[in-house]
C-alpha cells in the first residue's frame, strides 16, 4: 500500500493532480493531508484535474490499470478482470469487492479520491418481486442454507433462514 507522499505515515487515499506553471504533477496523499492541501489549492478553485478522463474511457483504463494475471475474475458474476480492462464496464456490485485494490487505484486516478464522501444509503424497503423472481431467490437461499449447514456455519445458516422467512412472508 502506497503511503502518503506528504506525511509518509498514513496510507494514501487521494490522488491529487496539480497543474503548476503549466506542468502537471500528481501527489498521492492521505485524507488528512489532502484536506490540508485542499484548503490551500482548493478543489473549488479548480486545481483538481480530471482532464485525463476526457476522451476514450477504455483507452484510459488500458493505459492506467496495473497489469494483472489473466485469471483474476469476480467470484459472483465471473467477469474477468482482463475483460473489464477492455470494456471499462464491471459486471455486478460484487466486482467492486473482487477487484477492490485495483479499483481503489483507478478511482483515485479518475476522481481524485478513492472514498465516497456523499450521501449515505440506509437501504430501502423490501421490493415486491414477481412470483418468478421470488421463487428464484428462494431456491438460491435454500442452496446457500444447505451449503452453510454442510460447512457447519450455523450462524450463517440462521441468518439465511431469516432472510428466506422474510421473502416467504412477503411473497408466499
Amino acid at each position: 500500500m502506497k503511503l502518503c507522499e506528504d506525511c509518509h505515515k498514513t496510507p494514501a487515499a487521494v490522488f491529487l493532480k496539480l497543474a503548476v506553471n503549466n506542468k502537471v504533477t500528481g501527489l498521492h496523499l492521505c485524507q488528512a493531508c489532502a484536506a490540508k492541501k485542499g484548503a490551500v489549492y482548493g478543489f473549488e478553485s479548480g486545481v483538481f484535474n480530471a482532464s485525463d478522463i476526457v476522451g476514450n474511457v477504455s483507452d484510459y483504463f488500458n493505459d492506467f490499470l496495473p497489469r494483472e494475471r489473466k485469471t483474476l475474475a469476480c467470484a459472483a458474476c465471473g467477469l474477468k478482470y482482463s475483460r473489464f480492462k477492455e470494456t471499462g464496464r464491471l459486471g455486478c456490485a460484487q466486482c467492486y469487492k473482487s477487484f477492490e485494490p485495483q479499483l481503489a487505484e483507478l478511482m483515485a486516478r479518475i476522481h481524485g479520491f478513492a472514498r465516497h464522501a456523499g450521501r449515505g444509503y440506509a437501504g430501502g424497503g423490501a421490493p415486491e418481486f414477481s412470483r418468478a423472481e421470488a421463487s428464484r431467490r428462494g431456491e438460491a437461499l435454500n442452496a446457500a442454507i444447505r451449503a452453510a449447514v454442510d460447512k457447519e456455519d450455523f450462524a450463517a445458516a440462521a441468518r439465511l433462514r431469516d432472510a428466506l422467512r422474510e421473502l416467504e412472508n412477503r411473497h408466499g
Binding site: I53, V57, G88, R89, L90, A93, Y96, K97, E100, L103, A104, L106, M107, I110, H111, F113, A114, R115, H116, A117, G118, R119, G120, Y121, G123, G124, G125, A126, P127
Partner: peptide, 26 residues
C-alpha cells in the same frame, strides 16, 4: 431508493457499471 434496494458500499458509494460514475453517481 426507499421503494427499491440500491447497491451501495461504504467505500465506493453507489455502485455503477462504470467506475467513473460510482460514488455519488451524480
Amino acid at each position: 431508493g426507499g421503494n427499491l434496494r440500491y447497491s451501495f458500499a461504504e467505500q465506493f458509494g453507489f455502485l455503477t457499471a462504470c467506475p467513473a460514475n460510482a460514488g455519488t453517481g451524480i
